[in-house]
C-alpha cells in the first residue's frame, strides 16, 4: 500500500466523512431516543391504520403481528430512510471519487503520472473508503447509544445485538459502495456517475417498499439490498445474519472487483 496515496485519499475524503458521521450520529441519537419513548403512543394510534402498519412492515421487512415491542422501535433507527440516505450518500460520494471524479476534475493525469499502478490507486482508495465507512457507522452507533442513555434500561438496545445490526449495515454499505465503484469505473463524469447510482438506489429502495403492496414485485424484491438488512430480527433474536451478510458482501465484492478490472484496463482521458 502506498502511503502517499493513502494520505491523499484521507486528506480529500475526511470532510465528507466527518460531516456525514456527525449528522448520522445526531439522527441516530434522536431516533434512538424518540422512537422507543413514543413507541407506545405510536402503536396505539398510528399503527392501527392498515396502511401505516404496511409501511412500517415494509420498512422493517418483517411481519409485525404481535411483535410490537422495544425492538421494533430500536430497529427503525437502522432502517429509517434518513439513516439509509446518509450511509448510502457516503458510499456514493466516496466511491465515485476515482476514477470518475478524478477524470472529471482533470487530476487523474497528475496522480497516474506517478510510479503507481492503477490497482495500487484502487486499493489505497478502497482502504480509506472502508475505514471511513466504518467510522461513519461507528458514529451512528455511538449516536444510537447516546440517544438511548436517556431511556429506561428496559427500552435500551443490547450493545452486542446492536453491533450485529451495525455489521449487517456495513455489509449493505459495501454492496452500495461496490456498485458505485463499478459505475464510477465506467464513467468520465462524477455527476453522471452519482446520478446513476442515486437513481438505481432509489429504484431498489422503492422496490423494497412497494413489494408488500404489489405481489408481482415480491418476485424480484431479492434484488433490493434492503431485503438483506432486517435489524428487527437481529435485535429480537441476536443471531448473526450470515446468509444476508454473505449475499451483500458477495454482490459488493463482485462489483468492486469488476470495477477494479475496468479501471485497470480502461483508457483515461481528461480532454
Amino acid at each position: 500500500m502506498n502511503s502517499g496515496l493513502l494520505m491523499r485519499a484521507l486528506r480529500e475524503s475526511w470532510p465528507a466523512t466527518l460531516i456525514i458521521g456527525l449528522v448520522l450520529m445526531g439522527v441516530e441519537s434522536l431516533l434512538a431516543f424518540v422512537l422507543p419513548k413514543f413507541g407506545a403512543q405510536l402503536a396505539q394510534q398510528w399503527l392501527q391504520i392498515d396502511f401505516a402498519r404496511s409501511i412500517m412492515q415494509a420498512m422493517l421487512g418483517t411481519e409485525m403481528a404481535g411483535r410490537i415491542g422495544p425492538q421494533i422501535f430500536q430497529a427503525v433507527a437502522w432502517v429509517h430512510p434518513a439513516v439509509l440516505a446518509l450511509v448510502w450518500a457516503h458510499a456514493t460520494i466516496f466511491c465515485t471519487r476515482v476514477p470518475a471524479g478524478e477524470v472529471d476534475r482533470g487530476t487523474v493525469d497528475v496522480w497516474l503520472s506517478l510510479p503507481v499502478s492503477r490497482w495500487e490507486v484502487f486499493l489505497s482508495e478502497t482502504t480509506v473508503w472502508l475505514s471511513s465507512g466504518a467510522v461513519v457507522l461507528l458514529a451512528g452507533w455511538a449516536g444510537n447509544l447516546l440517544g438511548s442513555l436517556a431511556l429506561p434500561e428496559a427500552q435500551r438496545p443490547e450493545a452486542g445485538r446492536l453491533f450485529i445490526v451495525l455489521c449487517n449495515l456495513f455489509c449493505l454499505y459495501i454492496a452500495v459502495g461496490g456498485f458505485a465503484w463499478l459505475v464510477s469505473s465506467l464513467s468520465e463524469r462524477r455527476g453522471r456517475a452519482m446520478t446513476s447510482v442515486f437513481l438505481v438506489l432509489l429504484a431498489l429502495f422503492l422496490l423494497y417498499y412497494l413489494a408488500p403492496f404489489w405481489p408481482p414485485l415480491e418476485r424480484v424484491v431479492f434484488l433490493s439490498p434492503l431485503h438483506y438488512h432486517r435489524p428487527v430480527n437481529l435485535l429480537a433474536g441476536g443471531a448473526w445474519p450470515w446468509r444476508d451478510m454473505a449475499i451483500l458482501l458477495g454482490a459488493g465484492g463482485a462489483m468492486w472487483l469488476a470495477a477494479g478490472l475496468v479501471f485497470a484496463k480502461r483508457d483515461l482521458c481528461t480532454v
Binding site: 480529500e12 476534475r105 482533470g106 487530476t107 493525469d109 497528475v110 503520472s113 506517478l114 510510479p115 503507481v116 499502478s117 495500487e120 481528461t270 480532454v271
Partner: peptide, 17 residues
C-alpha cells in the same frame, strides 16, 4: 509503473486539487 519512476510529467492542462 516501472517507467514512471524515472519520468517527470507536466500535463498540458494541469489540474491540481
Amino acid at each position: 509503473k516501472a517507467i514512471k519512476r524515472d519520468v517527470g510529467y507536466l500535463p498540458g492542462d494541469l489540474h491540481l486539487p
